[in-house]
């Protein structure tokens, strides 16, 4: 989010709602500010834009293609429609395929009930999966004394990769493999517990949208993430401001 100084000067319309935007704000920034919710998964306030989940695509008037709202700066007189029948179906299919890609068994997941993928399913009307479940044979890395990584629940949003690199500055995580074999790896594919650069800060766990990264010892449904902490830290770092924030639920 860009907290522009001065007055907002760019007139835009989002879902029929007129608003004034600051220079440099993205469509998603403005929509969030005026209370219009756009579905997204990989985007997180305070981190760089990744553009991988494609859920926040929106319709821009007179533009033949859908635009990524997290990465598209607003321009004057832009008219945005955040959802239409086709976009809704696109999002629904993508969410369904994310479910099909992993082993997302909510009933036995630490994050059941505190899961952005679950929330997205509800938001996009996913009540069952039309596609073949892939049942991948992904691995669990429980080598870290404090945290656990279950790749079967990973949606490859790379929030952990970015938070570790951009906020903590450790760059423990990265993506290994390609295509459907992609997976989050620590230290060029070492067990997490053997990582010499991991600082045990736990930010990756806080930002994970699903149950892929969790505190050890949490039973089913007990895990609570806290992705908003990152924007709090980023603001503190960049602007020297420590704003009031509520602890996670």
């Amino acid at each position: 989010m860009s907290r522009g100084n001065g007055r907002p000067s760019i007139p835009v319309t989002i879902d029929g709602q007129e608003a004034m935007a600051y220079e440099g704000e993205t469509i998603l920034d403005v929509a969030t500010r005026i209370g219009v919710r756009i579905p997204r998964l990989c985007y997180l306030e305070g981190l760089s834009v990744w553009g991988g989940c494609r859920l926040c695509l929106v319709e821009v008037e007179d533009d033949p293609r859908y635009r990524l709202s997290c990465a598209t700066p607003v321009v004057a007189e832009m008219a945005v429609t955040t959802t239409n029948w086709e976009l809704h179906n696109h999002r629904r299919r993508i969410v369904e395929m994310l479910f099909a890609e992993g082993n997302h068994i909510c009933a036995v997941c630490v994050s059941n009930g505190d899961c952005e993928l679950q929330d997205l399913a509800a938001e996009t009307d996913v009540d069952h999966i039309h596609y073949d479940l892939q049942h991948p044979d992904a691995s669990v890395d429980a080598s870290h004394p404090k945290y656990v990584l279950d790749r079967e629940r990973c949606v490859l949003c790379t929030r952990c990769v970015r938070v570790c690199n951009e906020i903590e500055g450790a760059h423990v995580w990265d993506v290994g493999g390609r295509g459907s074999d992609s997976m989050i790896v620590a230290e060029l594919s070492k067990p997490w517990g053997e990582s010499p650069s991991c600082t045990w800060c736990g930010k990756c766990v806080l930002v994970c949208p699903t149950g892929a990264l969790a505190f050890k010892g949490r039973a089913v449904g007990e895990m609570r993430h806290d992705p908003a902490v990152i924007d709090f830290l980023k603001t503190a770092r960049d602007e020297g401001k420590w704003y009031e924030r509520q602890e996670a639920r």
Binding site: I105, A107, V108, H128, I129, L133, H135
Partner: peptide, 9 residues
């Protein structure tokens, strides 16, 4: 019934 869930493990 909806996803296979634990049975499909």
């Amino acid at each position: 019934a909806v996803t296979g869930n634990v049975t499909a493990l």
